[in-house]
Design a protein around this nucleic acid. Structure first.
Length: 611
RNA sequence: GCGCCCGUAGCUCAGCAGGAUAGAGCGAGCGCCUCCUAAGCGCUAGGUCGGAGGUUCGAAUCCUCCCGGGCGCACCA
């Protein structure tokens, strides 16, 4: 797939030089709105009007005349103050006869952390948004040419893990028939909280919970945590999300990273131990220089009882991620469904080249914005403004369930496993209804169910609150994952039939084939050509929803092409088209299918060949 | 109180490093399977882009203020 805008920009730049005008840093070129003449256009004359003291239409005419010869350009049309370009159909379609390709990786490493669910209970739909966003973002960045490392942080020394493990030990219950271990742990966790709510229980049980916490910090209960983690990973994997490395909090502490981070910070004037006042005996970080406007800029890193806060551990982790600290050891953990190896930090591991990133992205909900700012502040306290600028918080709004906030205590939650099960069941019913002869209905049901869920989680702007509603999230019509999948399957079907007839969609086009292109092909090609830009924009702005929107456009353009009729007759048959045009159309179908496949892959949505 | 985010069609949302008559989906109405998958396509109806100022040749997009909603401002995890 070739860039259609770049040559136009180049030509405009040359024209400006010929007119003796200094070209602006970026020359805008956009598709012409429908109803306007030409295929692409630029508002450049408006921008130059003031400087040149000439009316825009006059500048547009002058630019048109000064344009160098340009392959594929049929006509340069001044339209009011715009300068539009009409391109030869064959040229335009020719640019779209190769599928898009990923960019080769280059530059520094981007360490993206997502999921990071407490290893104490099953995932719910709030976590789902994190996994879907993080996994899609990682794929998009890698495709756009970044070197990406995906980390999942395991908070194994937290209160929640301790409570679940304590509950499991206390109630001596076994998982129910077919009950996943994370659900089991979550169920007993809830039971424990009910008991803790009873009169006087908290005081009695608290020391025992603290003892579990101590053993967790010592790493004595790692196998117990892993049992829950393994069950959670099964859920992430079924969703199609994978990771490169697990980072255990207990390892960070045990390998002394926390101590090292605090030591680094203590060398700065911003970290102090007040001898009086409310922070007496604690180690605090004065953030006032970095986060202005706070009523109380002091942030506790180590409590007066000597225990470290989450913030302190997060800072240590951030320092490690950006190569300011070393000492973590790793070893292989397991193979993931795709075959991609998963590593884990481990006390008996070896040094491996994880971390040391120049850029970090934390996928975490918007309520964590302040702690994320603190991470930057800590980097700046060390004088590393460069690293602070390289840290990004991919903040997403929380998920509501049927209009109300999720609440584990009130039982107002839906687990990801239950959601997936329901989605696949609904998909199974629809596959049976729509395509009773499907060769592998179970595969299709799984792909469509997962696809619907994952697309629902990434199609909205991350900073918009999602109200999860069953009927909407599992909709198989309209702006939804299955719509894209259906478009893909339709294209795949044509390709399959073509190959049965002995045609090769990937074969080089015969001489003159692109010349047979008409308006339908041009319209489709123009949408296809927008794909690389959509991916890049998603990567730069760190949000998958832009790519999601483009894929919907592409699928719509393809469906419109597929259904085009003139006088009630199909206007764009592929296999029944005359030779030459048939090869061109087939080629375009192949490019559509490949583009959808790649785009869906970037969102973590499966692309069924048949559905 | 201070700070951040959101406010676009009846509902759910795109568009927001300023550009051409503001776009989808759902829902409503009408139409399209003797044609490569109708999970699709076409047409119709539906909008003072929360409000008011400002900047600009041009504002949904940038700035200011106001209104409405969400979130954050713990030696909690």
């Amino acid at each position: 797939m070739q860039d259609v805008k770049a040559p136009l920009r180049e030509a405009l730049k040359t024209a400006l030089e010929r007119l003796g005008v200094e070209p602006p840093a970026t020359i805008p070129v956009e598709p012409a709105p429908k109803g306007k003449p030409g295929d692409y256009g630029t508002p450049l004359p408006f921008q130059l009007a003031r400087r040149l003291k000439k009316p825009p239409p006059e500048i547009a005419r002058a630019l048109a005349e000064a344009l160098p010869p340009l392959p594929g350009l049929a006509e340069a049309l001044p339209v009011g103050g715009f300068l539009n370009f009409r391109l030869e159909p064959g040229y335009l379609v020719g640019l779209a006869t190769e599928p898009p390709a990923p960019r080769p990786p280059s530059g520094g490493k981007v360490l993206l952390e997502h999921t990071s669910v407490n290893p104490n209970k099953e995932l719910h739909i709030g976590h789902l948004r994190n996994v879907a966003l993080g996994d899609a973002m990682a794929r998009i960045l890698a495709y756009a040419g970044r070197v990406v490392e995906v980390a999942n942080y395991i908070d194994d020394t937290g209160r929640q893990a301790a409570e679940s493990l304590f509950a499991i030990a206390r109630y001596r219950e076994a998982p129910g028939e077919g009950e996943k271990y994370d659900h089991f742990a979550g169920r007993l966790y809830v039971r424990l909280h009910r008991e803790l709510g009873e009169e006087g229980k908290k005081e009695v049980l608290e020391p025992e919970i603290r003892e579990v916490l101590r053993r967790l910090e010592a790493g004595e209960l790692r196998a117990e945590v892993e049992r829950i983690l393994t069950a959670q990973l099964a859920t992430m994997w079924r969703l199609g999300a994978e990771y490169d490395v697990l980072l255990w909090e207990s390892d960070i502490v045990r390998e002394g990273l926390l101590e090292k981070a605090l030591a680094l910070l203590k060398t700065t004037p911003y970290v102090l131990e007040p001898e009086e006042g409310k922070y007496r005996g604690a180690l605090v970080f004065d953030t006032s220089k970095f986060i202005p406007g706070l009523e109380d800029p002091y942030l506790v890193l180590v409590r007066s009882d000597g225990t470290a806060t989450y913030t302190a551990k997060d800072i240590a982790l951030q320092f490690w991620k950006m190569g300011l600290l070393s000492g973590l050891k790793f070893r292989p953990y397991t193979a993931q469904p795709s075959g991609r190896p998963l590593f884990t930090s481990h006390p008996q591991g070896e040094p491996m080249p994880f971390g040391g990133a120049s850029e970090t992205i934390n996928v975490i909900d918007v309520r964590q914005s302040y702690p994320q700012e603190v991470l930057k502040a800590a980097l700046r306290a060390l004088g590393r403004d460069d690293l602070a600028a390289g840290h990004h918080h991919l903040a997403y709004e929380t998920v509501l369930l049927e209009g109300r906030p999720l609440s584990g205590r009130k039982g107002h939650v839906v687990s990801v496993d239950a959601l997936v099960q329901e989605a696949v069941a609904r998909a199974r019913a629809i596959v049976a209804e729509k395509n009773p002869d499907h060769p592998d209905p179970e595969l299709a049901a799984e792909q469509v169910g997962i696809g619907a869920i994952r697309f629902a989680m990434v199609k909205a702007e991350p900073r918009r609150q999602i109200d999860f509603r069953w009927d909407q999230a599992l909709s198989f019509e309209g702006d939804a994952g299955p719509y894209l999948q259906y478009a893909h399957a339709r294209a795949a079907s044509i390709l399959r039939k073509a190959r049965e007839k002995g045609l090769d969609p990937e074969a080089p086009l015969p001489e003159g084939a692109v010349g047979t292109a008409g308006g339908y092909e041009v319209a489709l090609a123009k949408v296809l050509l927008g794909f690389p830009e959509a991916v890049e924009k998603s990567a730069v702005e760190r949000t998958p929803h832009l790519l999601a929107a483009h894929l919907l456009d592409l699928a719509a353009a393809w469906n419109a092409y597929y259904n085009a009729k003139e006088d009630g007759q199909p206007a764009t048959p592929v296999l029944a088209a005359p030779e030459g045009l048939r090869e061109l159309r087939l080629r375009l179908v192949w490019v559509v299918k490949e583009t959808l496949r790649q785009g869906l892959a970037l969102l973590g949505v499966p692309a069924p060949e048949v559905m």
